[in-house]
Amino acid sequence: MSAKKKTILIIDDEPHIQTMVATRLQANDFKVITALDGKEGLEKVKKERPDLILLDIMMPEMDGYDFLRELKKISGVNLMPIIMFTAKVRREDIDKAIYLGAVDYVIKPFTSTVLLDKIRQFLKS
């Protein structure tokens, strides 16, 4: 394996979701780091510079929208793709995230193929 493993940051306040997604991603050769809310997420972004972020919307402390707003203030991360990973299905909720800088979304409950396809698509470009 010559290529370095890509790192994905999962920001979600539900530990079981993190476990499930991490297992799936690790089985597909990704390195996974996790954060339980937006604040912790920002720390991890600064420290570990992940290649892609899976971001929940409804979280305590700092929600997904605020995370997106705060992220813009950090330099050198503007190309980091963020895929919304949410149980919110209303179009306006998704649109708001896209407006704030997310590239795509995956709705919970998710299908692993859809999730993996989207992750690969944005890591390639």
């Binding site: 079981h16 979701i17 499930m20 149980a87 409950p109 998710f110 692993s112």
Partner: peptide, 16 residues
């Protein structure tokens, strides 16, 4: 919304 979180976990567990 609340139902989706546990469903996500169950679905992914079973899928795995």
């Amino acid at each position: 919304h609340e139902l989706r979180t546990p469903m996500t976990i169950i679905r992914e567990g079973v899928s795995q």
